[in-house]
Design a protein around this nucleic acid. Structure first.
Lengths: 345, 345
DNA sequence: CTGAAAGCGCTTACAG
DNA sequence: CTGAAAGCGCTTACAG
């Protein structure tokens, strides 16, 4: 009977202290790698903890240190758009890989709009659910940096915040990928190249558009064919239809993400165009499926997993040490497949 | 100076007790809707709490109640496969919608394999990170139900566990969707219909395969053309190629998910087949992109968001009240588009 | 280098 | 119906 009770109860710091013949305080010091514990004593404590299968209670540590040992990610997007976007699963996997070995958990939140997003950050901060957050999908006039600052929530952003505040950032330049795409198409002989861009309120969509514009100028192309979308397949299809309706329609289209490029392929096929001869297409993200559609999609390969690892390491450093240097990741590169070819004569 | 200090500190239960002129204990009772607090006193306490902008500390509540006020989801899949699968974003959105209004958080974990998965559950339980978990992607000989039972972690499974243990379940029958697909194809005149199945170790893949077999039998079709895959686009493409290499190749293929169906379309196109005339194709999931590829994909529509809401509500009930009834969701239905047509002559 | 004690902010028997 | 106090399991000055 008492044996059962003894087995059911998980060991506390007091059990370790008794087993090692020291005080709770000293156990705490040893476990936290604090200086000022004799080497022998430290070892004895560690052994005792090991022997007992002791794990420090996160709830108790949270209460006394005001730390949750968790990091947060809140994503404000339409579920359909998230589902079509290969970024988040890869990013989260990367984050996990780092957090798991550091004993941290990831608290995830998908919210439908800006308002719910702000509310979520407030709740996360008020409840001290997380020690810091990842800031993704940076926007123009983004209200979040100021909000997080006000809430005192450490954050690392993916990409650099607009105003250039003090927020730690992990960056990855999309420009070379888009530039390569335009050069590649121009090199094939295309002169009328269009861009199906993401929403102007999203910074990375803007960067891709700007890169497209700059590369077009560099190649002496007009670069006036830019259509804005919300990143959805539906918008990508509509934008493609609009471009193909033009009297002087483009011979190539650079899309700001893969789902739209795939939808664009569909529109072109429906119109009986012969791809890639009648229309060259490039995507962005290099989704898993890109290699298997017809024609296989030329796309810009980003590395969401690397972003995740880097962002997690940076945020952890920020949370643990109060500061972290910015990190710049190797830029995205173009993967050439069969959806791009010289224009028809 | 002291004002600043006063402002920075967030109110505790003691502040509320003082403001209301009662003891901490009584505040706790009032906040937890316990009986035995005079109506007037309760109101006074609630008002005081409101006035002060008081929120109970989750860390403190966690420590004294051994409750984390969080639920867990651990997903063991290759990031690429997750990325291609529209299920999780929708599911998570649904879960969130319920958790947010109940003050619960979602702890998410993506792990690479079974071993990491088991370790994650152990850690989640040992650290009391979550009060319960969602069990997705049920497998044959699934080690998780027994592990969770042993760890004392309440769980609700998506679909019914193999052995039929005591675990709460939210179910959604895939059978009608597949049956409809086969009937639809048979009705169009197809006699050689193949199935590109998911991995046999995954229960929902098995269910879809069994449904395919049963529907084939019902329609008097051989139903022998079944190829197993890992659900990836790569495997879907390979399976399609193998089927099309057959002397007596199928005129229609029922895929167990959309990414494979899309990859299959690509393979068929590459071989110069005229779709859907030369080959009819159906998917499963009804991804956002299904409507925009060419030809638009006939697919089975599941409702991941509904699953998420139902599963979250069920798990919360289980965690809060110790028991929850099983729930059966409306079955998936076929959405007919243009990737299916009568076979050539 | 080590111990004893207070404190983190709640909840919960126990009295009255 | 209400209060006083112990307890959840840690961390952290403070002494020595």
């Amino acid at each position: 009977m008492s044996e059962v009770t003894a087995m059911a109860r998980k060991p506390t710091i007091l059990d370790v202290a008794r087993a090692a013949g020291v005080s709770k305080g000293l156990v705490s010091f040893a476990l936290n790698d604090r200086p000022g514990v004799a080497a022998g004593t430290r070892q004895r404590i560690l052994d005792a903890a090991d022997e007992l299968g002791y794990r420090r209670s996160i709830a108790a540590r949270s209460l006394s240190t005001r730390t949750s040992f968790a990091l947060g990610l809140v994503v404000a997007r339409n579920p359909d758009v998230i589902a079509a976007d290969p970024f988040f699963p890869g990013f989260i996997s990367g984050v996990e890989q780092v957090l798991a070995q550091r004993g941290r958990a990831l608290v995830l939140s998908f919210v439908p709009d800006d308002e719910a997003e702000a509310e979520t950050y407030r709740t996360l901060a008020a409840d001290q659910r997380v020690d810091g957050v990842f800031l993704t999908d940076l926007r123009t006039d983004d209200f979040r940096p100021a909000l997080l600052e006000q809430l005192g929530l450490p954050a690392v952003s993916l990409g650099r915040v607009d105003g250039g505040g003090p927020m730690a950032a992990v960056t990855l330049d999309d420009t070379p990928g888009i530039t390569d795409a335009v050069r590649h198409l121009a090199g094939l002989g295309h002169r009328r190249i269009a861009h199906v861009a993401g929403p102007a309120r999203m910074l990375h969509a803007l960067h891709r558009r700007d890169a497209f514009l700059a590369a077009s100028a560099e190649q002496g192309l007009p670069g006036t064919l830019v259509v804005e979308t919300d990143f959805s397949a539906a918008d990508g299809a509509a934008a493609t239809a609009a471009l193909l309706d033009l009297d002087d329609r483009p011979t190539a289209i650079v899309y700001a993400n893969d789902p739209m490029a795939i939808a664009g392929l569909g529109v072109a096929h429906r119109r009986g165009l012969d791809l890639p001869t009648d229309l060259s297409i490039t995507g962005f993200d290099d989704s898993d499926i890109a290699d298997y559609i017809y024609p296989a999609l030329t796309s810009v390969r980003t590395r969401p997993g690397q972003w995740g690892e880097a962002a997690a390491a940076t945020l952890l450093q920020l949370v643990d040490h109060g500061a972290a240097p910015d990190l710049d990741l190797p830029p995205a590169g173009l993967v050439v497949r069969n959806s791009t070819a010289p224009p028809r004569s």
